[in-house]
Computed example of a mutant assay.
Amino acid sequence: MQSQQRIWDPLIRLFHWSVAAGFLLNFTLTEEGETLHEWIGYYILAALLVRVCWGFIGPRNARFSDFFPRKPGLKSHLRELAQGQIKQHAGHTPLGGLMVMLLMAGLLLVGLSGWLTTTDMFWGEDWVEDVHEFFANLTLLLVLVHVAAVTLFSVLGPANLVRQMLTGRRCTRKLNKN
C-alpha cells in the first residue's frame, strides 16, 4: 500500500532536470568555446540565481532553512545510516542537503570560471581553463555520487526519490500488516 504527498514544486523539478541535462550536455556533447556550450552555461548560471532566490521565498521544502546541513543533523543521520536505518524525511536528508549545497557550489564555480574564459582579462589564459575543467570534473564526480546515493536510497529506503522528483509527489511504501 502507498500514500502520496506533495513534496517538490514545479520550479524545483524544472531546475533539477534542466540543469542536470544542461550540465551533462556541456560535459559530454558540446565543446568548450562553442556558442551552444556558452549559452547552456549561461542558462545554468541564470537557473542557479532563480534557485537561490527560491531558496529564500519558495515553499518549505525548497527553502535552504529547511535543509541546510548542520553538524548535529549530519552526525545523527550518519549514525542512523551506520545502523542500517533509512528514515523518512519531509524533504532532503542532512546528507542530501549537503549534496545540494555542494552541487550548487560546483555548478556556480564551473559557470563562473567558464564565463571568465570569455572575458578580455582572462582570454586565452591556460590557468582559467584549467580551473574551469577542474570544477567541471569535480562537479561530475559529485553528480555521480548523487546519482548512486539516490539510486541506493530509492531501492532501500521508504521512498522512490527518482519518481518523486519526476512527479513532485512522495510515494511512500508502507508494509502490509497481515
Rank of each mutant, 00 (worst) to 15 (best):
residue 60 R to G: 06
residue 155 V to Q: 00
residue 93 T to L: 03
residue 131 V to S: 02
residue 175 L to G: 09
residue 85 Q to G: 06
residue 98 L to V: 06
residue 158 P to G: 05
residue 12 I to V: 11
residue 130 D to A: 12
residue 20 A to R: 05
residue 37 H to G: 09
residue 125 E to M: 15
residue 146 H to T: 10
residue 1 M to T: 12
residue 46 A to G: 07
residue 48 L to E: 08
residue 140 L to W: 05
residue 162 V to D: 04
residue 127 W to E: 10
residue 33 G to W: 07
residue 22 G to V: 00
residue 146 H to V: 03
residue 135 F to Q: 07
residue 116 L to E: 04
residue 124 G to Q: 02
residue 165 M to A: 01
residue 153 F to H: 07
residue 108 L to M: 05
residue 76 S to Y: 14
residue 163 R to P: 06
residue 71 K to Y: 15
residue 11 L to G: 03
residue 28 T to Y: 15
residue 68 F to M: 07
residue 6 R to L: 14
residue 113 S to A: 06
residue 32 E to Q: 14
residue 111 G to H: 02
residue 139 T to S: 04
residue 62 A to E: 02
residue 109 L to Q: 11
residue 146 H to Q: 09
residue 140 L to F: 10
residue 18 S to G: 00
residue 27 F to T: 01
residue 80 E to R: 14
residue 96 G to V: 10
residue 30 T to N: 07
residue 173 R to H: 06
residue 124 G to A: 02
residue 159 A to I: 15
residue 123 W to G: 13
residue 28 T to F: 15
residue 164 Q to I: 08
residue 137 N to W: 07
residue 164 Q to M: 13
residue 114 G to Q: 01
residue 110 V to W: 00
residue 117 T to C: 00
residue 119 T to A: 00
residue 18 S to K: 02
residue 132 H to N: 09
residue 50 V to S: 10
residue 114 G to F: 01
residue 144 L to F: 08
residue 14 L to E: 05
residue 82 A to I: 08
residue 21 A to T: 12
residue 153 F to C: 05
residue 89 H to E: 13
residue 24 L to A: 01
